[in-house]
């Protein structure tokens, strides 16, 4: 199976700052798996990894063409097919988790995205996710406007003033990839205890303490 070099280069370009020198499909899979599990356990929506998803989808597509060309007598066809199915499961599960979060926290997420754009940071949502979020919030608006007619005491913005936010102080299990020193246990408290976490060790800790570390990839949620 040929590696899709063009796509891999795209990834390298878009991540100049992160020194991707060369990346094999196996490493992309590894990355996808980490991204999937992180997204599953993080209370808030994480920055999108569209590059990784695109590469995987590309790989699945080219693999499927190859599978079609295999004869039915070949028992390895099953193995190829199973791998493709496994990958597809992982990617869909990842994307669905994100959509679920968008549906739950749509107002909050759109607000945060706006702030990010103002500050000139890149968006967390991908193009399509952003569109979905906007569509979703518009339909919610329409729906509530309609339904509020039945409740004369409430105005239509009653619902949107109660913003649903993810609880970033929730507890998560994590595994560290490097040694981290002086991590506050409770980030909301200025004189909270500090802990040192050795590379490879696993702890349960408040998500807000490690939020940045999850986003830059120093720790994985498990």
């Amino acid at each position: 199976m040929d590696l899709d070099d063009t796509n891999l280069e795209d990834l390298n370009d878009s991540n100049d700052s992160e020194d991707y020198v060369h990346i094999t499909p196996a490493e992309v899979l590894e990355l996808m798996e980490e991204t999937w599990v992180n997204e599953k356990f993080a209370p808030e929506i994480l920055p999108n990894k569209t590059e990784v998803v695109d590469i995987i989808l590309e790989q699945i597509k080219s693999m499927e063409v190859n599978i079609k060309n295999l004869s039915n007598d070949d028992f390895t066809k099953n193995i190829y097919q199973l791998e493709v199915d496994k990958l597809r499961f992982m990617v869909t599960s990842y994307l669905r988790t994100r959509l679920e979060k968008i549906e739950s926290y749509v107002v909050h997420i759109l607000k945060e995205e706006e702030k990010r754009v103002e500050k000139g940071e890149s968006k967390y949502l991908s193009e399509q996710e952003y569109k979905f979020a906007q569509d979703y919030s518009r339909s919610m608006d329409r729906y509530f406007n309609k339904i509020m007619n039945f409740c004369p005491n409430l105005t239509s913005d009653t619902w949107s003033s109660k913003v649903i936010e993810p609880n970033n102080n929730s507890f998560v299990f994590m595994k560290s990839k490097k040694t981290i020193e002086g991590l506050p246990i409770d980030i909301t408290n200025a004189d909270s205890d500090l802990v040192d976490i050795k590379s490879g060790s696993r702890v349960i800790i408040c998500y807000s303490s490690i939020e940045e570390l999850v986003k830059n990839g120093d720790v994985n949620l498990i």
């Binding site: 356990f41 993080a42 209370p43 679920e100 739950s104 926290y105 003033s161 109660k162 913003v163 649903i164 936010e165 993810p166 609880n167 929730s170 507890f171 998560v172 998500y207």
Partner: peptide
Amino acid sequence: SNVSSFLMSKRASTSFQ
């Protein structure tokens, strides 16, 4: 004080604030 956040769905990591 005037912001309340609700737990949606079964996700355990979020909850009533």
